[in-house]
Design a protein around this nucleic acid. Structure first.
Lengths: 225, 225
DNA sequence: CAGTGGTCTAGACCACTTC
DNA sequence: AAGTGGTCTAGACCACTGC
């Protein structure tokens, strides 16, 4: 029931949800039961508990959630700071592949965005992004380039779309001439290909992203449990 | 306290631990407290709950835990079935890099293993593995090639070493002549490099693994939450 | 000091497994 | 039927936050 309220935007990202006692009264269960439910949602990063303050809806606008889905880090171990530069933002008709991943019909309108991310002026990431036009109406290149923070915070603020999880398929590929140009590497250099599908509440896919990382001085970091 | 017992091998992988009531009596706490502790360890995949049966120490010998740390899967979506072929197993002195990762002293004895894993006779993975000689005394190439299952099950059965988690750093690299030969790809092909440190109880690193995957027909699959 | 989440208790009843 | 984990309750007390 809490999840349904989140999905229905009854509480927005960053908001505090009602206290455990209030929820217990509302659903006519005990505090312990509410607690367990919240624990599970917090374990999935949908809620954030803060002792003494309350329980909050997770948001990509928060410091600690800012680059939650970015696994790239410098080999040196320092923190990566990337600067975005958007190259293109255009509307087009969805092909079979994108339609299937976004659960649209072939020919439905989608928005396609290109961007490069750089660290210290050196390009590290080239991305192609597909969004369903229905949910992201009126998105422009200017708006994207004017936005200072992470993209998922932009989606939240401008399009009330909060990403809850993502799936990535990773491969090694060779740079073609276009990628070589964007990432300032030689043709035939090895690049990391990361194809991501990102989901909002209710397992709804709302973003496809194909990224190419230059991993000469950084790596994709993964923890296995 | 339960974690300490696991670390001390009081209960071995695959064993049932005492029931919640027994543990409650042993530690002089209530069943609910034991339950919460077990829940946390189960969330970390250290224990496995089975309703009606009991709670068990996780083991890589179990079906579902067999390839817990292998994220590679065919693009087709089917299940990958890999066959191991060990090429080498030799003792040598640890260099600076390996010593640091395994928390040994430079010059301490380590075991270095090479293997190739194939799917349908086609080589997919080439791995170099380093183990601390102290914990894996007497390991031979013959023993490795005679073992039918996954390596982490081998470590458990033969060396009482259970892996609980791992960290991987992933890059894209180009095949040199040696890799090209082992993986039957051309020199200069793009390969996925996966460098793993695997840990037993108590955050103790006990295996370094540098793998190269041919990702032409398979990919590294990752879920982000 | 009031309100929040964090931990713990003792006990009820349910669902699944085994004999 | 006995024993296991699974869910839930009602209430106690603690730790942290903000006024």
């Amino acid at each position: 029931m809490i999840l349904a309220s989140l999905q229905a935007s009854e509480w927005l990202p960053g908001d505090a949800i009602p206290s455990e006692m209030e929820l217990a009264a509302r659903y006519a269960v005990s505090q312990g039961t509410v607690r367990k439910a919240i624990d599970e949602l917090a374990a999935q990063n949908l809620l954030v508990r803060r002792q003494g303050k309350g329980t909050f809806v997770a948001t990509h606008q928060e410091e600690d959630f800012q680059y939650r889905f970015l696994r790239l880090e410098p080999d040196s171990g320092h923190k990566l700071h990337l600067k975005s530069h958007f190259l293109a933002c255009e509307n087009l008709k969805s092909d079979v592949l994108i339609a299937r991943l976004l659960k649209l019909k072939v020919g439905d309108c989608v928005i396609r965005i290109d961007r490069v991310q750089s660290s210290d002026g050196r390009p590290i990431v080239f991305e192609e992004i597909w969004l369903p036009e229905g949910r992201f109406k009126g998105l422009t290149l200017e708006a994207l380039n004017a936005w200072p923070g992470p993209m998922y915070a932009f989606y939240e603020c401008e399009y009330a779309t909060h990403m809850v999880r993502a799936e990535e398929k990773i491969k090694a590929v060779l740079a073609n001439s276009e990628l070589a140009k964007h990432l300032q590497v030689s043709e035939g250099a090895a690049l990391l290909s990361v194809e991501r599908v990102a989901f909002t509440y209710g397992n709804k896919p709302v973003e496809i992203r194909r990224a190419r990382y230059d991993t000469s001085d950084q790596h994709y970091d993964n923890k296995l449990n």
